[in-house]
Design a protein around this nucleic acid. Structure first.
Lengths: 204, 204
DNA sequence: CGCTCTATTGGCCAAATGATCAATTGCCTT
DNA sequence: AAGGCAATTGATCATTTGGCCAATAGAGCG
């Protein structure tokens, strides 16, 4: 039970240490949820004393917000970079939806759900959540608008498609990944997008 | 800061006291969220000592689960009772959707989101959530099946409609009730139901 | 009216949390 | 190589949490 004293005491430059903490905080968020991001838990994971975390992040809520923002922005960037690498607008949308339906995303869905709920009592986290949602909205609206799809209002279409995916996310969180309801909702997202944009995604 | 000593000490019968606690626990869940349901918070609200709560609910998680179950079941019962009072199947569905889109439901949506997230770490609450979801699924499936709508699979239609409403709930939680996105999602739920069941709800 | 039963109290514990601060010790500069 | 700056430690605080238990006192029964 005694606290492990770290013999490998390393003195990092402030930037490195801060980046290390942020990275480890992201891991904690994805693996154990926002509630598990405590000073001591994170410090133990870093092999460091709790007070040091406080030194770089005077209030842990700021760290939680920054870590969530990093994860969310990273995911958006990765998904849209991959999508935009496709040649045609339809292929871009298809790629995006396929990636979004990937079971691998379950962890991120859990985090989003966690963030949605926790943001009720945490102002900074709430700001990060709203920013991330706006980013999603902007990127998808742009993708749709630039694609020249048969929709009268790209922004509204983006909103609806994102809501579909949100609903799917909740199911993914509650049910097991291979539950029957999952396939049903998968189909609903696909046909919803097809109807919204007037295209055929060519997915099963 | 001194603890208020209650001069109005009343001795209730076990059933009454337990029911009182459960009722107050429901209020706390709806007003302040699951995280606010603590021994001391609830005890203060009851004008009672924390230990007494423990006497009736040896572990507070059981109380949280029971309170959530009570709220969820009560809501389902109220909504479907009101819906079934309508004369025609289409009117029944319309009534249900209208009630579900009521801004008043925001508090319940918050609670559901809270429960979805918290159920990750609370086994009993998770059980209550799953039970409540199944109840929703059963009631709506039955309503659709008995209505003779033009859908090949009433259960699947119910699943899809519920997912639409879940997505809407998240928006209701994050955005303000009068945000522009809200009207968009309202419309999506309505047209989604209309397409799913092959009817016209006659809503704006 | 008085007695008994038990609902209720008040006090306590151990654990975990965020936060602060002087003291130390490692790295960089000169 | 030596000194100084600051990254890091270790210790401590105030709070809050769930839970336990002996003592008390209220309500109903005889």
């Amino acid at each position: 039970m005694a606290t492990m004293i770290n013999p490998n005491r390393k003195r990092l430059k402030p930037d490195e240490r801060r980046a290390d903490m942020l990275a480890k905080a992201c891991e904690v968020l994805l693996e154990d949820g926002i509630g598990a991001l405590t000073l001591r838990h994170l410090a133990a994971r870093l092999g460091v004393v709790p007070g040091l975390v406080n030194h770089y992040f005077p209030e842990i809520e700021a760290l939680a917000a920054e870590a969530f923002a990093a994860i969310a922005e990273s995911e958006v960037t990765a998904l849209f970079d991959a999508a935009l690498a496709e040649p045609t607008p339809t292929a871009q949308i298809t790629r995006l939806i396929v990636d979004l339906l990937e079971p691998h995303r379950r962890g991120v869905s859990l985090l989003w759900l966690d963030a949605w709920q926790a943001s009720r009592n945490r102002a900074q986290l709430r700001g990060a959540v709203i920013t991330a949602m706006d980013l999603w909205q902007d990127r998808l609206s742009t993708l749709i608008a630039n694609g020249g799809f048969a929709t009268p209002d790209p922004a509204a279409s983006a909103t609806r498609i994102l809501a579909l995916i949100d609903g799917l996310s909740i199911q993914a969180v509650i049910d097991e990944p291979d539950a029957p309801g999952h396939a049903i909702l998968r189909g609903m997202v696909i046909t919803g997008v097809e109807r919204e944009l007037g295209i055929a995604l060519g997915l099963v």
